[in-house]
Design a protein around this nucleic acid. Structure first.
Lengths: 151, 151
DNA sequence: TATTGTTATACTCTATAACTATA
DNA sequence: TATAGTTATAGAGTATAACAATA
């Protein structure tokens, strides 16, 4: 089929949403049962980018509710991909850290994601792909787009 | 807070996802009970972009499952924002069309979306915002990124 | 027999509130 | 009293399969 497609009347958020949905669908379809879901990947990625951190931070940076973070970390801990340990300086906090298996699992999933992105972004030149990524990165890094729930 | 933020290790899909999630959250928070949800907006937008169409098309263009489309259209029809009528040439099909109220509701929601995007994309110059939108638009319009469920 | 749309259903994702343990 | 994390629960979003009507 020659791909008639919504234009979303010139707005950016619906376009980003469309790309993200297509990307996650393609990724989860490609990921075997020994690997991680796309939501688990977000958690592992944040740990890769920023090192061990308290659970509170996942809520802030990922825009996830605290109760979701608990469930996601439970899954990852059961699979042996992260560990939770108490912070001795403030025993209310759990410091979350990746295991070696967690590092490997993320790398494995990244390989899958790279394939998906190659397919989805294939109409853009490499330079344009880099440009798209840079623009999105700046937007997401801006205060307003951080996952803050304004609470 | 000075907004430390995930970098997602240089991938595009997670960045698009982050922006989309932040955008929908901000939009739905801003939308009153007399307005439409962001998923309903996608349906109305497709009708605006492409005119009256059968329900099958929503599945293809939006990447939504057929059963979801039914529910979404039920909501919109109950609110009087779309109408379904049988296609006389193929009585299996329902042709979906916006009502005047549907047109107005979409315009109203677009005004909200414009405010949200102004906030979220504010770190980019207008030229960069246009560039981002153009790149996303090309990606989404490419065959691979259409909501095709490969079935 | 194949297709469009519908229903029933279950599973995933997200949000809210009440709770605990620490501070 | 406030904060980090947990649990219970409900609601939104999504996917699968069986079905009715029509082709």
């Amino acid at each position: 089929m020659n791909s008639p497609v919504p234009r979303y009347s010139g707005h950016t958020i619906p376009l980003a949403s469309h790309l993200a949905r297509a990307g996650w669908r393609a990724l989860d379809r490609r990921v075997s049962s020994t690997e991680v879901t796309h939501r688990q990947m977000l958690v592992l990625t944040l740990l890769e980018d920023r090192g061990p951190m308290a659970q509170k931070a996942f809520r802030e940076f990922l825009g996830l509710d605290a109760s979701n973070v608990v469930g996601l970390l439970n899954e990852l801990e059961e699979q042996g991909l992260v560990v939770r340990r108490r912070n001795p300086d403030d025993r209310r906090q759990h410091v979350v850290e990746r295991t070696d298996a967690g590092v490997r699992a993320l790398e494995h999933t990244y390989a899958r994601l790279a394939i998906v992105e190659k397919e989805l972004l294939g109409t853009l030149t490499p330079a344009e792909q880099a440009q798209l990524q840079a623009l999105l990165s700046r937007v997401v890094s801006a205060p307003a787009a951080s996952g803050t729930n304004s609470d």
